[in-house]
Amino acid sequence: MSDVTDPIVETRGLEMRFSLPTHFLSREKPVLHALSGVDVKIRKGETFCVVGESGCGKTTLGRAIMGLLTPSSGEVYFRGRRIDTMDEAERKPVRADMQMVFQNPYASLNPRRNVFQTLAEPIRHLMPEKSEADVRAQVEDVLDATGCDQSWQRKLPHEFSGGQRQRIAIARALVTNPAFVVADEPISALDVSIQAQILNLLNDLQDERDLTYMFITHDLSVVEHFGDRVAVMYLGQVMELAPTGNIFDDPKHPYTQLLLAAIPKLTGGSFDAPRTPGELPDPVNPSPGCPFAPRCAIAQDICRAERPRLRPIEDSGTMAACHFAENSRELIMDKENAGVSG
């Protein structure tokens, strides 16, 4: 994105390939392409949402940025420094500055550690210069900031509800005072009445602590409320990258339009027509063309032959990887109308 100057996080040509076990009769070495060339720039202070269906690479992208996975090729920058090639000693202070909240607070908290131990661990490990008194003070601060009670310190995870656990997981991510937080589906494991509590908490913390979020989710309605910019991913590639308003008001990529049409609406009526079955293509043997072409209503020969590059669409502020992004909506509408009359 040319308009982002001085990003806090940047990826360049990020690729992630996983070798799969070879079939015993086959010479082929199957390779799964989880990320194929992802370039994103995340601005300081913004909420950058990454949206897509399972297998699209959104979690892999988050983990590669965090250094939990080593990219097969490409570069990751944090505050202008390349971090994916750093050794562990060099990386430690960087890790304190970038943290992660995971989806399932039942799995992400160690059941045998009380809340104090869980929260003290990142400080002791990543900030060894801190004294025990500092550790205690920082734990108390973060508990207050995340709406947790000080009495929780000696309690174990099983004593808490899902919403409370997710607060603790957020507290753990913030205890080292990071500037950048990757939140991977932080509300999808929670009950509906709790989701709003956690979203509001994340919002308040962002204001108070000047945080930058990378928010990974499959739920577009949350994105609309929460995000500043959105990257829509499909099969390891960014399909559309745009300010949130553009994604909802003027989606350029046919896949974004499909995702929007799939949101159940409180007004009803949008599930009345039967939909044709779609399937994610195989990430093991990607076709040379656009990964979405097999499901796309308006795919042409060029889409199957040539992979579209992510490019700015006119001066809308949106970037999309589609050969027909300029008039995809008209083309899809024509197609639908033709289908009805024919």
């Binding site: 269906e53 399972s54 995702l259 799939a262 599930f271 939909r275 079955p277 779609g278």
Partner: peptide, 13 residues
């Protein structure tokens, strides 16, 4: 997934 949910629910409906 969301797009599959939309397919399945409209099928059931």
């Amino acid at each position: 997934d969301v797009t599959i949910q939309a397919e399945i629910m409209s099928l059931i409906l």
